[in-house]
Design a protein around this nucleic acid. Structure first.
Lengths: 209, 209
DNA sequence: GTCTATAAGAAGATAGAC
DNA sequence: GTCTATCTTCTTATAGAC
């Protein structure tokens, strides 16, 4: 009567190990040990080590499409909830940035899977493409749409909204990569994010004329 | 009469393979084959596979300290060559950005070693620390110093120069990571960099009052 | 310094008992 | 579904001839 089936526990433990050591460096025996069974038993659930990895990939992609895809990265669709943002102040922007950062850094599966993609992106074209899509292209295009709408609404000075998205997102991306490997630097990073967004707001704010 | 000794060629070929597949996924036989010798011959030059990796680390670190450390990332020490920058226009900033980006992306050793650090950073604390130092902390602190001086000289509006460095560097860092795995997107990235720096210049330029 | 031969062990995976 | 026992292949590394 465990919370997770053995088949699911294999995925969970394998993901943790792959994120920590990389696919090649993890043996089937290590995965089995983490689950609490012997290596051969594992082959009753998955027919190969590669199969375990593929199952992780499938599971994480569907999780992404469900959570992040439909919610568009932070629970807000740019079109529908526009009014929520049209009177968005600096403090709201800081909150949004910090929450986005915190989710990406602390959500267990998101964080572990990003580490796996980081480490394996060069060995498999599909993984490289997935990394680019999930952590570069989609955040940028989503935030680009959002800033375009806010710009139209007169919340910011007229500039290229896609470059604006790059200016907003890239610093958080850099600090995310930093903290992923150096968790002790999270407070420092959070402070940088706040300073970043305050300055970003000042730069893009519409001056009263 | 080869240009490189066998001992050096082992380092070169091993670096290429480690950057492509990761340390664990590369066998000593593969390195030997790339060099053009048999695996056991390799042990006359290095006493273990780990030793080869350590030699790469030492070599690349010293290369970094020589080239990038003393030249402060792009050949210019912030204090000494200030006058060169004090009348720096938008086009100069774009050139500097593109050259910096191009160097990081195309310099063979820089690029390969960054890939190795990217892939191995989670498995070894020293490698994680090196990654943070070389690709985050030092570029940011150097550019922070530079922008602080330019700000003092009246070239930019008064803002936090370290955040300004983050705004300048982080977008290039993100695009660098993207192109490292997707070289075909370099033209697109170069265009983004140009747009980024133009917008950056407009945002930080001192308005005549 | 290079080779062939080989040791010693770990890896992924299967067979078959329970 | 789990286990023990086993197979096969690959891996790092050494020995010793040339």
């Amino acid at each position: 009567m465990e919370r997770q089936s053995t088949k699911d526990r294999i995925i969970t433990e394998a993901l943790k190990l792959f994120a920590e050591k990389g696919y090649e460096a993890v043996s089937v025996a290590q995965i089995a040990e983490a689950v609490g069974i012997k290596a051969p038993s594992l082959y009753k659930h998955y027919k190969s080590k590669q199969n375990i990895f593929t199952a992780i990939l499938t599971e994480m992609s569907s999780r992404y499409e469900k959570q992040v895809g439909s919610m568009r990265m932070n629970g807000i669709t740019p079109g529908a909830d526009m009014e929520l943002f049209s009177n968005m102040g600096e403090e709201q922007l800081i909150d949004m940035g910090k929450q986005l950062f915190s989710f990406f850094l602390h959500d267990e599966y998101t964080s572990l899977f990003r580490r796996v993609l980081t480490v394996e992106q060069y060995r498999d074209k599909k993984l490289g493409a997935l990394y680019a899509k999930q952590y570069v292209d989609e955040p940028l295009s989503y935030q680009g749409e959002l800033f375009a709408l806010l710009m139209q609404a007169g919340a910011f000075i007229p500039e290229n909204p896609n470059v604006m998205a790059l200016h907003f997102f890239a610093p958080m991306f850099l600090l995310l990569i930093l903290c992923e490997c150096h968790p002790e630097r999270e407070p420092e990073a959070m402070q940088m994010i706040e300073q970043h967004i305050r300055q970003f707001s000042r730069l893009y704010e519409k001056k009263v004329s």
